[in-house]
């Protein structure tokens, strides 16, 4: 006689990654660090964004970068010019960063730098519009970039990334006039998937949107003692 039995498992496939991400976040929280996970398809402008962010904010905030791009040394070298800790992660052939890889980066932060002095850790994820959004690494916020050259339909085709993002940067807007692209259409497509997301059009070339982005970054930073970010928000509110 062949009798079969059932065993309930009821566990998420990403359970282990999720636990690792929660663990990483605990480290960040303990040190008072805000961590942002920066994601996009290859070449949308993540590294340029990091360069401009470091340049503008490194006098105000203590920032470190965890660099997960596969062309890692190239991007890491570009960022080291700003004299902040840049920790390259060898992602091998993985199509996304996972929490274990980032834990390795946190370990280096812990032993070679003083993480308790840091305010912000920026993680540059592997260039990929599909899965990085599913693999939390311990971030407090997800930032996705979509360059105007990628087309209006990308949010519709890769909805998970756009759904998960807290801040969405439409990059390379300086190129829009040369393309047959409608910025309002991109915004509309993103909003139907994620009505809550903050959308910021940005150009690294003309500087459009940079201030708005820097304000957003500072508004999500939790500085336990100070209230720099909150203060900024209030200023903005009183202006309106």
């Amino acid at each position: 006689m062949h009798q079969t039995f059932d065993a309930a498992i009821e566990l998420n496939l990403l359970h282990a990654n999720q636990e690792g991400a929660d663990h990483n976040r605990q480290h960040f929280d303990k040190w008072g660090i805000t961590c942002l996970n920066i994601m996009s398809s290859p070449g949308a402008g993540k590294t340029v964004l990091l360069e401009q962010t470091l340049k503008a904010l490194k006098a105000k905030l203590n920032i470190a970068v965890i660099e997960g791009d596969m062309t890692t040394q190239l991007d890491a070298d570009r960022l080291r010019k700003y004299n902040v800790p840049v920790i390259p992660i060898n992602t091998g052939r993985s199509c996304h960063l996972d929490s274990k890889m980032v834990a390795g980066g946190i370990h280096i932060l812990e032993h070679q730098y003083q993480p308790q002095n840091l305010d912000l850790v920026l993680v540059e994820n592997v260039g990929n519009l599909v899965c990085p959004a599913e693999f939390e690494v311990g971030e407090h916020g997800k930032v996705a970039l979509l360059s105007v050259t990628e087309g209006e339909d990308k949010p519709l085709k890769y909805p998970v990334m756009f759904r998960e993002a807290d801040c969405l940067l439409i990059t390379k807007t300086d190129l829009a006039p040369y393309l047959d692209i409608d910025l309002d259409r991109i915004t509309f497509n993103i909003k139907q998937i994620n009505p809550q997301v903050t959308i910021i059009p940005l150009s690294a070339k003309t500087g459009e949107g940079l201030e708005t982005w820097l304000d957003w970054v500072q508004s999500v930073i939790c500085i336990p003692s100070g209230t720099k970010a909150k203060h900024k928000e209030q200023q903005k509110e009183t202006k309106i």
């Binding site: 498992i9 009821e10 566990l11 998420n12 496939l13 139907q192």
Partner: peptide
């Protein structure tokens, strides 16, 4: 716009036979 997702985000191991 799409506010609440009811189903479609599952990635679950349900049970073994």
């Amino acid at each position: 716009p799409m506010n609440d997702i009811r189903y479609g985000r599952e990635l679950k191991i349900d049970r073994l036979e």
